[in-house]
Amino acid sequence: MVKDLASTTVGVFRVEGKLYAYENTCPHQGGPVCQGLLIPRVEEKLNASQGAEGFRFDESDPRLVCPWHGFEFSVKTGCHPGKAEIRLTQFEVEEEGELVYVRV
């Protein structure tokens, strides 16, 4: 889910029961990253002789894809998979009953 808060917008995502909150501003050009597609990581499978055997989804690593230009961020870390320094601004998030609290 994505919500307005004061002067910013925050996206909150639940992965394997845990909540993650990120600012809805992409480190690339400022796009609405939290309004992007959530999709598992794509990995390339290699065989024993290093030959490529095609792509497959890795469901354990969901990615948030910025809809402006496609930068992908691992939801669990907030980092771009190819360059960890490119990362989302993360907020603390807590859950109390049915309420979710985010510290910005």
Partner: peptide, 12 residues
């Protein structure tokens, strides 16, 4: 900590 309103779905 603040509570806030639902805003936007995914961009399609």
């Amino acid at each position: 900590m603040s509570e806030f309103e639902y805003r936007e779905p995914q961009i399609t």
